[in-house]
């Protein structure tokens, strides 16, 4: 009886294996190949899912902490069942100057994006069309400026802005960021201009267009994607900037990254407001990541192609 049972127990798992080997025989080499391919697909799906989860986890955790009642928000061990609340957002809005910092961040980002494009476009166009030594020198200088340690320019800016009375103003911060990001702007735009054939310029100039006419009437309309890409990047850089904003602002021109950084080391309600602020800041950024993905990728790629 016992022997019979073991045999039955053994036979059951053997069944599918035998069936599979029979299939392999008739089906030739495709079967193991296919199953190997499936294993690879499963592993790659797992790796990608795990990576995506890890990448958004800090943000999810901040969002969760902001939704908890204050007394358990940062409890250890973490609390997972709680009555969700919006109180930190209300407090953030009512008891801090968050809206002012948000307005400052947006003002700085918008001004610096607009000005960077207006002065960067003609420069980038000239750099893509003029083959003289001056062009090479400017491009190399721009690369060096792009790599400079921030403090080498930001600390003198701090002193200069204090001595001429523009310290802690949004326009001083915007001006600093325009200059700091101008090297990247002109490199990126130049790479986009370089892809427009020069014959187009020449044909228009034969037809009586001036150089500035070519830039305004022909190049700029063609540069739509390039301008959008550069605009998104300059906006993001200004929006992200911490170091420059921390040095050049104090109270009235403070930006959101500086505000969030100063909240650490504070007491619990303030920390929870910082996590609410993080969520409020991240949501539009997630929007940018999804909607403007094409341009972000294009901008990064254009850098990769031309260095």
């Amino acid at each position: 009886m016992t022997i019979d049972l073991t045999q039955v127990g053994d036979a059951a798992p053997r069944g599918p294996i035998a069936a599979a080997s029979a299939l392999t025989d008739s089906d030739g080499p495709t079967r193991p190949h296919r199953s190997r391919r499936r294993t690879v697909a499963v592993i790659s799906a797992l790796v990608l899912t795990a990576t995506c989860l890890l990448m958004i986890f800090p943000f999810l955790w901040a969002a969760l902490s902001a939704a908890k009642p204050t007394d358990v928000a940062f409890a250890n061990p973490p609390v997972f069942s709680f009555a969700p609340t919006l109180q930190p957002y209300v407090d953030l809005w009512q008891t801090t100057n968050f809206y002012l910092y948000l307005a400052n961040t947006l003002t700085v980002a918008v001004i610096s994006t607009l000005v960077a494009l207006v002065i960067g476009l003609p420069c980038a166009y000239a750099l893509s069309r003029y083959g003289g030594v001056a062009s090479i020198v400017l491009l190399v200088l721009a690369l060096v400026f792009r790599a400079l340690p921030r403090f080498a320019v930001v600390l003198p800016m701090y002193e200069i802005s204090k001595s001429i009375g523009i310290y802690d103003t949004t326009y001083a911060l915007a001006a600093a960021l325009i200059a700091i990001n101008q090297p990247f702007t002109i490199w990126l735009l130049r790479n986009f201009f370089a892809e427009i054939p020069r014959e187009l310029d020449e044909a228009a100039m034969v037809d009586g267009c001036t150089r500035f006419g070519v830039l305004r009437k022909i190049m700029i309309p063609l540069m739509g994607p390039g301008i959008l890409t550069a605009g998104i990047f300059v906006f993001l850089f200004a929006f992200q900037e911490y170091l420059t904003a921390a040095v050049l602002t104090d109270v009235s021109a403070k930006t959101v990254p500086v505000f969030i950084a100063t909240q650490i080391g504070q007491n619990l309600p303030l920390l929870q407001q910082a996590s609410a602020a993080t969520v409020l800041l991240t949501l539009p950024v997630i929007g940018i990541a999804f909607v403007a993905q094409k341009y972000l990728v294009a901008g990064l790629n254009s850098g990769a192609v031309k260095g």
Partner: peptide
């Protein structure tokens, strides 16, 4: 997937580090 992966790149670094 690209959208999700881009989030940490576009978030202000200091804010990401706080989180």
């Amino acid at each position: 997937v690209l959208g999700i992966l881009l989030i940490s790149y576009v978030l202000p670094h200091v804010v990401g580090a706080v989180a």
